[in-house]
Each structure stands twice: as C-alpha cells, then as structure tokens.
Amino acid sequence: MRASSRADARRTWWWATPRSGGIAALALVVAVLPLGFANGYFYDVAIQAGLNSIICVGLNLLIGYAGQISLGHAGFFALGAYGSALLAARYGWPPSLALVTAVAGVALVAYCVGRPILRLKGHYLAMATLGFGVIVSIVLANDDRLTGGPDGMQVPPFALAGYVARSDHAWYAIVGACLLAAVWLAQNLVESPTGRALRALHTSEVAAAIAGIDCPRHKVNVFVVSAVFAAAAGGLTAYYAGFITPSSASFVRSVELVTMVVFGGMASTFGAVVGATVLTVLPQALTVLKEYELAVFGALLMATMVFLPRGVVPTLSGLLQRGTR
C-alpha cells in the first residue's frame, strides 16, 4: 500500500498524522479495553462490536465514500458465514482454508452481482441490493438439507496449525487484529487514487466521467471490497459463535448495518467503528427497559439523527474543532 503524501512529508511524526494516529489510538483502545472487562460476557459484546465494526468499515467505503447504498450486505455476511461453515462442517476443510475460500467466493459473487446492478441509481440500487439479500436469506432457509434451514447449523471451532481458538481472549485478539487490519486497509484505500475517484463520483458521476474516471469499474471494485469485509466478518462470526442461522442474512440485519454506518457518520472510518460499537452495546444496556426497549432504541436513533445529522463522529469532531479554534 502506498503511504499518503502527508505521511511522506512528516515521516518522523508518522504516528501523529491523523490516519496513523487514529489507528494507533484504536489499537490502544483495543489493547486497554479488556482491563475493564469483568467476565466473558464483556468479551462477547466487545467481539461482536468488533465484527460489526469490520463490516461497517467496509460498508462505509461503499456508502460514505462512493455514495452507493446497499441494503443487502447482510447477504454477503451470511454467504461468508455459511460458506466457511459448510466447507468446514460438511466437507471437512480446514477452517482457515474454508474461510479464505468462502471470502474469495463472495468476492466473485459480489463482482457478478455488482457489475449489472451498480448501473442502477439511488433507491433503485437500494432495492436491487435488498432483493439480493432477500434471495440469499430465502435460499439459506429453504435449502435445509445443506444449511439446516431456519433453525441454523452448528459450526466447528476455528483452528490454525493445530491451535484451536476457543477462549474469549483468543477471539478478542483475533477480532481486534482483524479490525485494525480492516481500518488500515480502508484508510489506505481512501487515500489512494481509487479513494479520490470514489469521492469524485460521489459528488457527480457525470463530472467524474468527463474527468476520465472509469466510474463503473471503481464502483464495482469498492462494492467487491465492502462485500469481502462483510464476508470475512461473517466467516469469523460463524466460527466464533459456533452456530449460524439464516436470519443473519435478513433484510432487518442489512438495515441495521446501514444504520450503524450512518449513525457513526458517513465517510468516516472511525465513525463506522463508533456507530457499530454503540449500536451493538446499546441494546445490551437497554435490556433493563424490558418492553420499552424497542421504543426507546427507536427514539434514541431518531434523536441522534435529528440533532447530529452528519452522524456522531463527524458532527462531534466538527463541534470540537470549532470549540478549539
């Protein structure tokens, strides 16, 4: 990956550039957070927040930077999860190989699906991706001899070179490392020529095309990248949870993912992480409300978007910047 020009200019202070600094800070948070964990349940919630963050970092590339909406990303997540699970459980593949193969398979699927449907615009694209997600979830639920149907299937534990990942600590480490890698990749992509092309076509596709940018190719590429992030998180989730159901591909889940991205702040990688984390932890905190949980969650979501319309991170950091100026 190519380093950004700004990092080049201040090589001695590489860790203090916004990008590297952000990743260093995230790494610090990931490393320090377990000190406050009382038991395995905290690890569990943190791991899920991490997995959702990985998906959202990828999805944010598509929605936030390229301006293309997808309401079917749960479909890619589920394909990654079921692909890994099926290859490992039914055909006895080593889990790591199954995971890589499944992710590669999803990349291919995303390419084949993305090429035609990314010609659609706005809400029509949303509908087409939604249709894709719905199709995946129905096929997974219907093909019960292979997938176990709506009640789901068991997944063998993740093993690599004789080491079997079972403990919460191991999974926290794996997911934390993957999250950092995902953020690093996304940041590099954003700073690369592709990232600039994406932002250009977000502003105006026609203008970008006139400027010589191959819009369809860039759109399909970022679509595939975001699908790969989702599929990788899906595969990890399957091994971590040891159990998956087709509801992981549901329309509701896709909407949840988009909500996380917009909540955290579009076109902000750390916003995606914050959005995913907050919206993963919040339902756990709201269980004390019992039957009021759904209503309160909905109201909080509305209020956040009304008062912080650009999302939590961009709006708050904007305010901070204004305050310190």
């Binding site: 909905g298 109201a299 978007m305």
Partner: peptide, 9 residues
C-alpha cells in the same frame, strides 16, 4: 435512518 428509527419507535 430517521424513518427507520420512527418505525422502531
């Protein structure tokens, strides 16, 4: 997203 929140509410 606001309408999604509204639907939950």
């Amino acid at each position: 997203i606001i309408t999604i929140g509204a639907s939950m509410l």
